[in-house]
Write a protein that binds this DNA or RNA. Structure first.
Lengths: 140, 140
DNA sequence: CTCCGTGCAAATACTTTGCAAAGCG
DNA sequence: CGCTTTGCAAAGTATTTGCACGGAG
């Protein structure tokens, strides 16, 4: 017998995997992580459940990088750093705000639009890929 | 007889179409715009030439929205507004900077990364889609 | 002749979807 | 039983690529 459950076993596992990672994962990463412990999981289910989470507002897309959509469970406003080499994505620590209310007003006026959100993304090389680049130079 | 040309006729047409539009176009939009005047143009050629432009640094990707990659010929730093309904993309007028050198330093320190660029994107409803939404309400 | 650019079609890569079966209360 | 969730495979969509041809120098 099992207690009342809002999520099916698989749905819960998918959400927990996303919510416990710092990966800003792709659907496929989630699938590969869970496959060993849930052998009959299918990739379509991962996609379908992520769609459910987006609908519910507990997961959001943070964009498509290197051809794959990346998701985030942290719904609070924050920026991201994306490594252009390995496509690792990290949160930029909060505590420094780049955009405030007056900037929304500026954009709303200039673009004649109603603004509901924004995203800020920094690009560059992560620490690992910087090292790789240096090694490559040294070996050249 | 034709004068010295850096670009083939088609490459030039593709670039001009991108560079003269405010669309932040997709490859397919470029293709459809040019097809009438260049009937033997193929979509693969548009993709291939856009890849060349990116390589040359005269066109850049501004991300994937609604499943299609959007390009921009304006290489100067500026932000974008994306309508979440119709996926129209507009430049946010320059003259208001959101991110400065100290912010790059902040991110570089916090993420232990070297930052080469950033993008800022505002989301919401464009003026057209706001109207549509209002009509929909009125007719409900 | 050689090289670059190209059309065309096939191949890829990611994501979505239809359907029948299984799960749960 | 009735509604939800799922596996599986097929379909869908955007993009990339292999190949042979064609034009310019």
């Amino acid at each position: 017998m099992q207690t009342k459950r809002n999520f099916s076993v698989k749905r819960e596992a998918i959400f927990k995997k996303i919510a416990s990672s710092q990966e800003h994962p792709t659907a496929e990463w989630v699938y590969e992580q869970l496959k060993p412990e849930i052998p009959d999981l299918s990739l379509g289910t991962v996609y379908r459940n992520i769609a459910v989470f987006k609908e519910m507002g507990i997961v959001k897309s943070i964009g498509v990088y290197n051809g794959q959509e990346r998701y985030d469970w942290d719904m609070s406003p924050h920026s991201h750093f994306v490594c252009t080499e390995c496509f690792r994505i990290m949160d930029v620590p909060k505590g420094r705000s780049f955009v405030d209310k007056s900037m929304y007003e500026f954009v709303e006026t200039e673009c004649r639009a109603s603004i509901t959100g924004h995203s800020i993304c920094f690009y560059g090389l992560c620490s690992d890929c910087q090292k790789t680049d240096i090694s490559a130079l040294e070996n050249a």
